[in-house]
């Protein structure tokens, strides 16, 4: 006979809002019983969804690669699929809210249009007017090294929606995710549009709204450091100006 698995009940307070039905958002109290096989917050949420199928949230890969299940967990942005269930203290409800600063579509699903607009504004692709090489554009291992900590971003928007500067000026400030991506192309030796990219960012709003608050670094589920990348862009702008 197998030993019974230790079950644990998790209590949740979840932000609910269905614009077709609800006059305004409310917090729903709901609990779910999990077994030791449920490792991550997302596992519990999938069980919650089975219990109350009106609950809406985005999810896809369930292993921190797609960036779909970003949400505000107990006041801090993170990915449900990378958040350990065991780490939640007993007796306290887990409070789930949508990412702050973006319009809510429904429940935990936010409209990320503004976020992607800012991302696209930095031209997130390689600009190189040379003739196409036969195979690929090569880089030295040292030059390639520079891209580490930049290319890994999964665009989950945890950082940008944790940034007060983005909350105040989402239409003008590029935000940490966009600026990290901007530096990813500025730092790429195969890219030829460095000056244009710096021109595009030399602006009191687009780049200089960053006041090094570092919420972005605090919440990044991939452990990246947008503040450092922003600092490097500022450094390059200074180098160019003096």
């Amino acid at each position: 006979m197998t030993t019974p698995l230790a079950m644990r009940t998790f209590h949740f307070k979840i932000y609910r809002y269905d614009p077709d039905k609800d006059a305004k958002p409310y917090m729903q109290d709901i609990s779910v019983v999990c077994d030791p096989m449920d490792k991550k917050l997302l596992d519990a949420m999938v069980k919650l969804k089975a219990k109350d199928d009106s609950l809406s949230f985005r999810r896809s890969c369930r292993e921190g690669v797609c960036g779909s299940d970003a949400m505000n967990i107990n006041g801090k942005n993170g990915l449900a699929c990378l958040t350990d269930l065991a780490a939640f203290p007993e007796g306290k409800p887990i409070v789930l809210r949508p990412l702050p600063g973006l319009p809510v579509v429904r429940d935990l699903i936010v409209d990320m249009t503004q976020f992607f607009k800012q991302y696209l504004s930095i031209k997130p692709y390689l600009v190189n007017d040379d003739n196409l090489p036969e195979r690929e554009r090569l880089q030295s291992p040292e030059d390639r090294e520079e891209l580490n900590g930049l290319y890994e971003c999964i665009m989950c928007a945890c950082c940008t929606t944790a940034c007060p500067s983005f909350w105040w000026n989402p239409d003008k400030f590029v935000g940490p995710a966009g600026l990290l991506a901007a530096y990813r192309f500025i730092a790429d030796t195969r890219d030829q549009a460095t000056n244009e990219r710096l021109d595009n960012l030399e602006d009191p709003y687009r780049l200089f709204r960053c006041h090094t608050i570092m919420n972005c670094v605090d919440v990044c589920p991939k452990g990246l450091n947008p503040t450092k990348a922003i600092g490097k862009i500022k450094e390059m702008l200074v180098q160019r100006a003096v």
């Binding site: 003008k172 030399e202 602006d203 009191p204 687009r206 100006a241 003096v242």
Partner: peptide, 15 residues
């Protein structure tokens, strides 16, 4: 129409 791109900021930031 939203306009950004004042092309200043780095001098103030440095100052």
């Amino acid at each position: 129409r939203l306009v950004v791109g004042a092309h200043y900021g780095v001098k103030d930031w440095l100052a």
